[in-house]
Simulated scan of single mutants.
Amino acid sequence: MSGHAVGVRIPYAQAPGHVQRWVEDRLGGDLAQVIDCVGGMSPGPAARVRTASGSAAFVKACGAGLNPNTPDLLRAEARVLAALPEHPCLPRLLDVQDDGDWVVLLIEDLPGSPPPAPWRHADLVRVSDALAEARSVLDAVDVGDVPAAVESSPIFLTRWRALADQLHLVDPWWAAHHDALAHHAERAAGLIDGDALVHCDIRADNVVLTPDRTVLVDWGQARRGAAWMDHAMLALDCSMSGSETSTAELADADPALRDRDPADLLALAAAAAMSFVSRSTEPAPQSLPTLPATSARWADAFRPYLTEALAEVG
């Protein structure tokens, strides 16, 4: 089964009072409309809000009591958004509040929605074009405070190695192909190294399509890495979220990928899939009850591409 990642968020109405008061203060009035949003894995609220006078924003927030790691992801996203230049493919940060516990981001309200999953070919082309269009302005951003992918992307560095000790807990397919996949996953760390600012979490639910914009949202996982990574993430999401265009077909069509050795994309896919399988065997983190099942679904969705790529690449 394919589709967007869906966690369990609390509704905006359950956010602490001081969070709601801060939002209303920044927007200049009581809220007349709140539309809670689903999607993503954060347990905190995410909502489109509007005052009676028409001031609007997208609010995302989380406190350490919901999940100890999510506020740091919001802090990281706030730093990146603050550094991003104004561009149609990039979201605009309006304000941020951090009291040491709850972190609240006010982001421009985008009159659109994520592309449907499974991906449609036309939407993939839009997002691939947006990644290419944004590249020149992203290359001008000061990335000094952004973590290096080669130092802080466990999915591609170390996480996949844990599967070797968990093979008795998962489908036998993974044991039968473990050594071949591990051989390719070993190369992933070297392939993601670089100095470009990359989103590093391009998925269908991290894009908003409006009538005239294609906007890359959710920058909490941004890294300094190889510029081709975001195009690779889009190709891998053809497997993860499902698509009428396969991972291999998009790799053949995307100008940022089609001249690369097919073994490069296989290396990233192998590391990611093995990491997801490993994570699916472990207890759910605090307030992230759907993460093991989502990880298992993503891993299983990779199998057709991995089978094809292993047969082609060897």
Rank of each mutant, 00 (worst) to 15 (best):
D237K: 02
V8E: 14
V143F: 01
M41S: 14
H87C: 08
D98F: 01
M274C: 12
T245P: 07
G3C: 09
L288T: 10
S287I: 02
E308L: 11
L310A: 05
P255N: 10
H4I: 03
D72Q: 15
S2P: 15
L216M: 02
I35A: 14
W219L: 05
P289I: 07
P154N: 07
L169M: 12
C238F: 11
A83S: 15
S113D: 12
A204Y: 05
V34P: 03
A82R: 14
T70R: 11
R258H: 13
V143K: 00
L66H: 04
P285N: 08
R224H: 07
A222K: 02
E133H: 15
A61L: 08
R135G: 11
S53C: 01
L288P: 02
R159Q: 11
M1K: 12
R223L: 15
M233N: 15
A164H: 11
P304Q: 04
R75F: 09
P172G: 05
P118D: 05
A130E: 06
W22D: 00
V143A: 15
T51E: 00
A46E: 07
D179R: 13
H184Q: 13
A222E: 02
A296W: 11
S278H: 14
A263K: 05
S246Y: 06
A180T: 09
L191I: 08
T307H: 12
A296S: 13
S275W: 08
G7C: 03
D129G: 05
L66G: 15
C238H: 12
D179Y: 03
D201L: 05
A189N: 02
P111D: 11
D109K: 00
A271S: 10
L138M: 12
T51W: 00
A253E: 15
A175S: 13
P289Y: 04
V207A: 04
Q20K: 15
V127D: 02
M274L: 15
L167Y: 08
R159T: 08
G100E: 01
S239R: 08
M1G: 12
L81Q: 01
A253T: 13
A140C: 09
A272N: 13
A122T: 12
D259N: 13
A299T: 04
T247H: 09
P43T: 06
A47P: 06
W173M: 04
W219V: 04
A176C: 08
R21A: 15
I10C: 09
V207T: 05
L288S: 09
L268S: 07
D261C: 09
L94A: 01
W219A: 04
Y12S: 00
E86Q: 14
